[in-house]
């Protein structure tokens, strides 16, 4: 069983929902990232999603674009992201780590070489934003060979026929994009998400995480009532952006935001109180 599967299984038994924070690796500088990952675990993160900085992050809004630019100023690269995961793994062998990024840096390294290096570093899942299942054969084969879950996106425009095709290739969990738009936008409609996620659960067996537009403890809690996982990115990266002059304060600010989300989510789950 993969670390991601094991984590969802344990959460299900405990009656809790997964909290998945996203930060861009190397933002605002490479020294910040690994300590920040540990701080997020301590604050209640169940899975860590690490963004691989890319020069042309087409699916991201201004907050994560700026994060990529800050990281790239420090010459971050996919190889250095893998080094960070390996460093994190020295002190944490349990928390799943998921990479989120764009295809070109992976292709530049080579799908097979990347998959092997990612497994070696301790990566558990890879989400490639601009790689739909139609084109994903080579990378998915590489990831599967190295026991890494290929994570795929679903969106409000995804038809049932496409869901079936995506589920064939997907592992770990399904990442439902809550609205039509880019990361960090403010268009979250919880009722619409609930309806779509309910439908997806009826046709797909994997756990379903919801991301895009979750900005605070309240929206995290509401989404946790309808989904298996809550993914939060821009709301955390915003704290990093505000603290680039004092990177030593970033850990505390991000952890504080996460703890509030964790508490609000757990309060909505009756089973969590008894576990």
């Amino acid at each position: 069983m993969s670390r991601i599967q094991a984590r969802f299984e344990a959460l299900r038994r405990a009656g809790r929902k997964a909290l998945i924070p996203y930060v861009t690796a190397g933002d605002p500088d490479p020294q910040t990232t690994v300590p920040l990952m540990h701080a997020m675990v301590e604050a209640g993160a169940d899975i860590i999603e690490l963004g691989v900085p890319f020069s042309d992050p087409m699916a991201d809004g201004p907050v994560i674009q700026a994060a990529c630019e800050r990281a790239l100023r420090h010459h971050m690269s996919l190889r250095r992201v893998l080094e960070m995961v390996a460093e994190f793994r020295r002190d944490n062998d349990e928390t799943p780590v998921l990479l989120m990024g764009y295809l070109n840096p992976i292709e530049a390294m080579g799908c097979a070489e990347f998959s092997a290096a990612a497994q070696q570093a301790g990566v558990d899942g890879v989400l490639t934003v601009d790689l739909p299942p139609e084109e994903a054969g080579e990378l998915v084969a590489g990831l599967r060979t190295h026991e890494i879950d290929p994570i795929f996106l679903l969106s409000p425009t995804t038809t049932d026929a496409r869901v079936a095709r995506i589920v064939e290739q997907a592992g770990g969990f399904l990442y439902y994009v809550s609205f039509k738009g880019v990361t960090g936008a403010t268009r979250l409609d919880v009722d619409a998400v609930a309806e779509k996620v309910g439908h997806l659960k009826s046709i797909a067996a994997l756990p379903i995480g919801v991301g895009f537009g979750i900005r605070d403890a309240e929206s995290a809690a509401r989404i946790s009532q309808v989904a298996d996982a809550v993914i939060v990115g821009s709301a955390l990266v915003r704290h990093i952006a505000e603290s680039t002059d004092h990177p030593e304060t970033i850990k505390d600010k991000v952890a504080e935001e996460l703890r509030a989300m964790r508490a609000a989510m757990d309060a909505k789950q009756p089973a969590a109180a008894v576990s």
């Binding site: 996106l153 995804t158 496409r162």
Partner: peptide, 12 residues
């Protein structure tokens, strides 16, 4: 060639 875009754009 091909199609390399985020899932939201695939159906449109």
């Amino acid at each position: 060639g091909g199609r390399f875009v985020a899932e939201t754009l695939m159906e449109p």
